[in-house]
Design a protein around this nucleic acid. Structure first.
Lengths: 155, 155
DNA sequence: GATTGACATTTGAGCGCTCAACCAATAGGT
DNA sequence: ACCTATTGGTTGAGCGCTCAAATGTCAATC
């Protein structure tokens, strides 16, 4: 057990700035989508991922990996989305274990209607305030963070 | 109503990388603190802010502004922290409106015990993978985001 | 000395998430 | 064929958060 390497003043400030900013950012995103489209940001992601898949449908497990959800979290979420009529689940013929989630017409319509406002919000809270150079830096920084976390953590 | 300025391929990838990474990052932080200290990351922040205040105590409103919580959110949180014996609330003499939240000895001890593990985790998920230059970039990027959101949004 | 408005805080319902437990179907070894 | 482990998915309890409403207090005005 070695001595703790505390954050120096600069790191401390960087850390807190990042924390507050990303918190505000997520809240803004969530509020905008909840207000204008009646869904939280995470649900939007699920619909978006489904819409990009061939046949607008995927296995629960595949979907869970794509959106980085636990099986449980996805199950709860899709249950809600199904109750709203935006997604429908069905057993895959040939393999009675796996469930396939498919985007419905209504679901696609809801997504299409929500998309422009969401993209605008993403620009407003992030890209509009950044130079092209900073966007590149941001990408590299979080690529590094992501590969780190992906390899070290279990999920 | 103008045409939507969709995200180009690069922006799209940057955006998703950032989303996944920051999500994983927050989850890691939360899990570590929950596992090792029995509190979520947000509660750690509350204790940390209190510990830095003169007298280790602050008005609820001041505290709410510091941690960027709504009054309601803070009230719920502090209620839990009080139930755990880490914080105690009392009316301020002279002004019966405002409540002062103070860190207890137990609260300070819990914080002190949680701190090293938390700092290590922060290094692990973020700083360890970044060059000094990237840390500077990160700071500038989220400074920009923060001032933007602080001025445009209500909260 | 009541009335109005603004402030500081709390409360309760509802929702999304986590975690652990569970069920059902399949694959592998014997 | 039979048992076991693994895989795919769901469920329920508990918790933190949001949002809207309620409560209680001070400050100014009439």
């Amino acid at each position: 057990m070695s001595e703790t390497r505390w954050l120096d003043e600069d790191e401390q400030r960087t850390w807190r700035t990042f924390l507050w900013a990303s918190q505000l950012l997520h809240e803004s995103l969530d509020r905008q989508l909840q207000r204008d489209a009646g869904m939280p940001h995470t649900y939007y992601m699920i619909l978006a991922m489904l819409s990009e898949a061939p046949g607008r449908s995927m296995t629960m497990t595949e979907l869970a990996q794509l959106v980085r959800f636990s099986a449980s979290r996805l199950s709860h979420a899709v249950a809600k989305l199904e109750a709203q009529g935006w997604v429908c689940r069905s057993r895959r013929p040939g393999d009675a274990r796996t469930t396939v989630a498919a985007l419905t017409g209504e679901g696609f319509a809801a997504l299409a209607e929500a998309a422009p406002g969401h993209v605008e919000e993403v620009r407003r809270v992030l890209f509009d305030r950044l130079t092209a150079e900073q966007v590149g830096q941001l990408r590299h920084i979080f690529d590094a963070v992501l590969t780190n976390l992906n390899t070290t953590d279990g999920c």
